[in-house]
Amino acid sequence: MENFTPLSAFAGGLMIGAAAALLLWLNGKIAGVSGIRGRLLPPTKGDVDWRVLFLGGLVLGAALFRWLGPEGQGIAIDASLPIVVLGGLLVGIGTWLGSGCTSGHGVCGIGRLSPRSIAATAAFFGTAVLTVTFVRHVLGG
């Protein structure tokens, strides 16, 4: 529990919720990253700019935190290259079939109490926990 950071996690969560509220209030759009990304290709006329700007904003916002926030807070991707590719493929296929990810179902869908989103969130959280448990404690144990 030495890395327990509830306050920054909660504050970051509030910002994510506020961003979702902004996008819905101003543009009437659900801030679901997989949906915003997934419907970018093939492009639909008049529907490209806002998607690119939102996704670019994600990078910009993270860059802004790196600039303003505490030094030395990096990220670590421990998975091997083949696992990174496999994981990316599964996340791409899964979020397309399941019509959403952590943001679209987890934050926005639960925010409007959608039964589909609540079911999807339970399913992906459950399998993610099982996957980590299997990899770390069954294969790696």
Partner: peptide, 21 residues
């Protein structure tokens, strides 16, 4: 389709630790 998609996404998320955002 929804459940299958969410399950596949969960496995990918658990393997690497990245979701799309």
């Amino acid at each position: 389709r929804l459940v299958l998609g969410a399950v596949l996404f969960g496995v990918g998320w658990g393997l690497v630790g990245f979701c799309p955002g």
